[in-house]
């Protein structure tokens, strides 16, 4: 049996790997993929004979199952591997783990890891050896989660139309959020204006310089943002971020009560937002802490896109796998 043609592997490690045209292509293809989702027989042959490994070093229900379903509906052989937690001096190195899996001849590794940059490192090691294996970053530490940002954009655009000129407020534990970092990049590419709302302790380090360089707004006052008292006016989209339980003991804020009163999407704030922005929508990457960063009324409101996001996740991930593994032009420009 002859070896397959060597080809340069395509990766999706960061939204920055894409440009606006590539993002648009992925979102357009996702529309077609969502048609498949609505069929009774949810199977297309696009990735038949291809193998996709879901390599998850961190627990994840929705992202992993979303990628698994995406692969299966496209007829890829999809296998889940749960990696051991991050190892320092003991155990197998990350490089060995990655090379071992790539050596089996897989086409793509969809990777979730608790350490920022892990997917970048794996892609570099695989490229150095010319394995031709694609790497999809399914969340690396507090760095990026590109498919989440793409599905967020897809979901919002399905409801509101183009994001161009829209105002998106991202609220919550920004410093620890890979969803924030990826969304910041994709929203800029799609022409949206961004306001980031968090207590100072949950803003990323160097946020002021970063905001100035990349042209977004910082605020510590959610009510002022909802009232449209920042550049961009009243937001069209509220993106609520999950507050990790462990942050509460980390001294980032005094009590959950104080966090909710300052930065939660409470029932009162929902009312204010609905009044000021009647078309406005609410997103949350999940899993939600109901009652902490988002009230149950807001999570279940007509303006909430939380379940649409989950549904779009499968279509967008099908599109990403298609562009990386099947399409001629690839995901990048």
């Amino acid at each position: 049996m002859s070896a397959p043609e060597p080809r340069a592997a395509r990766h999706l490690l960061s939204v920055a790997d894409l440009d606006a045209a590539a993002v648009r292509r992925i979102l357009d293809t996702a529309v077609e993929m969502q048609e498949v989702q609505r069929r009774q027989v949810k199977k297309i042959p696009t990735l038949r004979g291809r193998t996709v490994i879901n390599l998850f070093f961190e627990d994840s229900t929705r992202t992993r199952s979303s990628f698994e379903i995406a692969g299966k509906w496209m007829s890829a052989d999809t296998i889940n591997i749960t990696g051991k937690g991050s190892s320092t001096s003991k155990g197998e190195s990350l490089r060995d783990t990655a090379l071992t899996i790539a050596a089996m001849g897989v086409d793509a590794i969809v990777m979730r890891h608790g350490a920022s940059g892990a997917a970048h490192q794996v892609a570099r090691w695989l490229d150095e050896l010319g394995t031709g294996t694609s790497v999809v970053n399914a969340g690396d530490g507090t760095h990026e989660h590109p498919t989440q940002a793409l599905l967020d954009a897809y979901t919002v655009e399905r409801r509101l139309g183009s994001l161009d000129g829209r105002h998106v407020a991202i609220v919550g534990d920004v410093t620890h959020s890979r969803v924030f970092r990826s969304n910041l990049l994709s929203l800029a590419m799609l022409g949206a204006q961004v306001t980031v709302v968090a207590p100072p302790t949950l803003m990323p380090s160097g946020a002021s310089a970063w905001a100035e360089r990349d042209g977004f707004t910082l605020s510590h006052d959610l009510d002022a943002v909802l009232a449209g008292e920042v550049a961009g006016g009243v937001p069209d989209v509220l993106m609520m971020l999950r507050v990790q339980r462990e942050r509460m003991s980390g001294g980032y804020f005094p009590t959950p009560r104080e966090y909710t009163i300052g930065y939660g999407l409470t029932r009162d704030r929902l009312a204010a937002f609905t009044a000021a922005s009647p078309h406005g929508v609410i997103c949350h990457p999940g899993p939600m802490n109901r009652g902490l960063e988002i009230a149950a009324d807001a999570a279940d409101a007509a303006s909430s896109l939380v379940l649409d996001q989950v549904s779009a996740g499968v279509a967008v991930r099908m599109s990403v796998l298609y562009h990386l593994l099947a399409s001629e032009e690839g995901a990048s420009a």
């Binding site: 507090t142 380090s205 970063w210």
Partner: peptide, 15 residues
């Protein structure tokens, strides 16, 4: 280093 770059990279830094 803790700064704008560590914020972007999502890496914890020392100030």
């Amino acid at each position: 280093d803790e700064g704008e770059l560590s914020g972007r990279l999502g890496l914890p830094g020392w100030p």
